[in-house]
Simulated assay, not measured.
Amino acid sequence: MKLPYLPDYDGSSFFDFVSTHHPELALRSHGMATVHDQMPTVGPVTVPSATTVLALKYQQGVVIAGDRRATEGFQIADRRIEKVFKIDDWSAMAIAGAAGPCIEMAKLFQTELEHYEKLEGMPLSCEGKANKLGQMVKANLPMVFQGLVVMPLYVGYDLKRGEGRIFKYDITGGKYEESDYHAIGSGGKDARNTMREHFRRGLSEQDALKLALLSLYNAADDDVGTGGPDLIRGIYPTSKFVTAHGITDVSDDILRAVYDEMMTARRSRET
């Protein structure tokens, strides 16, 4: 017996369900005209923005990392924001752009994959997950014109291929796979320059982590929107390993040890 307050919906996509029955919670790209009718054109709004995140492949999978700073104009809005999220057992997502919508998209993506797996009895493929995220980015397009840009970086371990994969997106939801590494955000170019110089295929897990942290450190050195390690407050980038064994968080103790080694090496070169 169908309960009277539940709508008639047979699909396995939670995102499509919300978009159809509660469009105010998940804007769709074809609703752009409605959005502009309801929201006066006042130019981009100023909201806290997440800045630099990156991912790079190594022997066992992918390391994904992001700094902890959120900016609002020329002010630091938050020093401890989380930009890297576990999505399911074999995938993670990092965000750059308007912090609020970015975090909401990560939460919705988590729910989408859980909902699909419960209804279908099996998880989506790595490619399918990447496609789903592209649909969500596309649905956010109307808000881009208000300055609420959401730019995700998605990584997953493909169990069929036996390898880690990295996907980037444009603001229209276009999906592109990177073969080795990528970085996005205000310091993305600086981080990519460091990875381009030092990356090599077949890195060990420890070397991949060191390169990820070095890339974020160099980005923070040149980009005011990217936060470097804060040794006084004990704030370090968020880092996760994505492998066939699942998602592993890198502890602050390990991050601190890597940065201590990095600082010691730099001081020795300067003296």
Rank of each mutant, 00 (worst) to 15 (best):
residue 189 K to F: 05
residue 174 G to T: 05
residue 165 R to E: 10
residue 122 M to W: 01
residue 145 F to G: 12
residue 132 K to S: 05
residue 200 R to E: 07
residue 193 N to S: 13
residue 136 M to G: 05
residue 182 H to W: 14
residue 159 L to A: 12
residue 190 D to I: 01
residue 163 E to A: 07
residue 181 Y to R: 10
residue 115 H to K: 00
residue 198 H to C: 12
residue 149 V to P: 15
residue 177 E to Y: 06
residue 112 E to S: 00
residue 165 R to G: 05
residue 121 G to L: 01
residue 120 E to S: 00
residue 172 T to N: 10
residue 188 G to H: 07
residue 199 F to H: 06
residue 166 I to Y: 10
residue 139 A to L: 00
residue 207 D to E: 12
residue 175 K to L: 01
residue 140 N to H: 05
residue 200 R to V: 14
residue 175 K to R: 10
residue 119 L to E: 02
residue 147 G to Y: 02
residue 196 R to A: 08
residue 122 M to R: 07
residue 192 R to K: 08
residue 183 A to H: 06
residue 131 N to L: 03
residue 125 S to P: 03
residue 183 A to I: 03
residue 161 R to L: 12
residue 123 P to K: 00
residue 195 M to D: 09
residue 172 T to Y: 07
residue 195 M to R: 12
residue 174 G to A: 08
residue 153 L to E: 09
residue 202 G to I: 01
residue 137 V to P: 08
residue 145 F to A: 14
residue 130 A to V: 01
residue 163 E to D: 05
residue 179 S to A: 15
residue 152 P to G: 13
residue 109 F to T: 01
residue 171 I to K: 15
residue 173 G to N: 04
residue 161 R to F: 03
residue 188 G to F: 04
residue 189 K to M: 10
residue 164 G to S: 14
residue 174 G to N: 10
residue 180 D to P: 15
residue 211 L to Q: 09
residue 128 G to Q: 00
residue 146 Q to F: 08
residue 172 T to H: 08
residue 177 E to D: 09
residue 211 L to K: 11
residue 199 F to N: 02
residue 191 A to D: 06
residue 164 G to L: 11
residue 115 H to W: 00
residue 199 F to D: 04
residue 122 M to E: 05
residue 214 L to T: 11
residue 121 G to N: 01
residue 151 M to K: 15
residue 120 E to D: 02
residue 208 A to R: 11
